[in-house]
């Protein structure tokens, strides 16, 4: 198991705070009309992203969903690149051609955020297959929601990963809801991802997705198995989203008291508690949080000041030669 020192944990706490602050900024910028389209905020899911990334190596691959801001940042995208993308600026992470749902930081191995539920699971399997073909020790991770476990691509991906024994981690962020409907009301098993894994011969664990150390440890175990040639793992991280599904959702369908109960287990509260237990002073924790806040404040200012999307970009990047020509 990976050891997590107090110093490690403080760094994880700082990155989680960076994500939380970025999500809050995205929310506020949306309300002030500067972010268009839609956003699916991941506040509440930070520990899954940061815990997973911290247990992996440079060179590993990640594939996320439209609820993917936390993963982009955990894999090295800056808050400013992300906010500039949401605000349609030319300095955006995807040159303002992707938006909130498609954040990608390919140079860091974060190979995209996909908005067709479940579609990226086979793609992540393909990256793991490629690692095996190229004889590297890379691992590929697919992050997905509980809702994705009922789509065919999930099942095809698990089976193929199992029969080919590929180094892939299937990390389900079970936040107990799809858009507005509880996953339990449409699924034949209690743990939507983990309970399916045995039928594909894949080991699975249900873990506390709000505890960054629990996530980190489980991912380290799964990645170790993958790198040793022992094939895929399903991790079902139980967590909760603090905002509604997307920017238009006030989340009225949640029973009274549910959000409050989960807020007591806020991943930042959990990691701060662990830090105090490990002897980190409140001042050091606050200093880390202030650093994160300052980065995001600067990011907001930088994104606001950045130029709007470059119009010529509408006709670039269709083909590998950079262009968009479809005819002679």
């Amino acid at each position: 198991m990976t050891e997590t020192t107090a110093t490690d944990l403080l760094a994880l706490h700082e990155t989680m705070t960076l994500i939380r602050r970025t999500e809050k900024a995205a929310h506020d910028l949306f309300l002030s009309g500067l972010v268009k389209g839609t956003t699916h905020l991941a506040a509440g899911h930070e520990a899954v992203a940061v815990g997973t990334r911290s247990a992996l190596q440079d060179g590993d691959y990640a594939f996320a969903t439209y609820r993917g801001h936390h993963h982009a940042i955990a894999w090295g995208a800056t808050p400013e690149e992300c906010l500039a993308e949401f605000m349609q600026r030319s300095t955006g992470l995807n040159k303002a051609k992707g938006g909130s749902m498609h954040l990608t930081k390919a140079e860091a191995g974060m190979l995209g955020s996909y908005a067709i539920v479940g579609a990226h699971l086979p793609i992540a399997v393909g990256a793991a297959w490629s690692a095996r073909l190229r004889k590297t020790d890379q691992v590929s991770v697919a992050f997905f929601g509980d809702g994705a476990t009922n789509i065919g691509a999930f099942h095809e991906a698990l089976n193929l990963a199992s029969v080919w024994k590929l180094p892939v981690l299937f990390v389900c962020e079970n936040n107990f809801y799809m858009e507005y409907t509880p996953i339990a009301s449409v699924t034949g098993v209690g743990n939507p991802a983990a309970d399916r894994a045995p039928s594909y011969g894949i080991p699975a664990e249900v873990i506390d997705g709000n505890d960054v150390v629990a996530v980190r440890d489980a991912v380290a175990r799964a990645a170790g198995r993958a790198r040793a040639g022992d094939g895929p793992t399903v991790l079902e991280a139980q967590t909760y989203r603090h905002y509604g599904h997307s920017r238009t959702d006030p989340a009225k369908y949640r029973p009274d008291g549910e959000l409050e109960r989960w807020l007591e287990r806020d991943p930042l509260t959990v990691s701060a508690g662990r830090l105090r237990e490990a002897g980190t002073s409140d001042d050091d924790i606050k200093a880390a949080e202030d650093r994160a806040a300052a980065v995001v404040d600067q990011a907001v200012a930088g994104a606001k000041a950045a130029p709007q999307a470059d119009l010529s970009e509408a006709f670039t990047d269709v083909w590998a030669d950079g262009g968009a020509a479809w005819r002679t």
Partner: peptide
């Protein structure tokens, strides 16, 4: 598994194959 075939091909193509 047509989705897995084409999806895996895509993931492999994005990573050097």
């Amino acid at each position: 598994s047509e989705q897995a075939i084409v999806g895996a091909a895509m993931g492999a193509a994005m990573t050097g194959m």
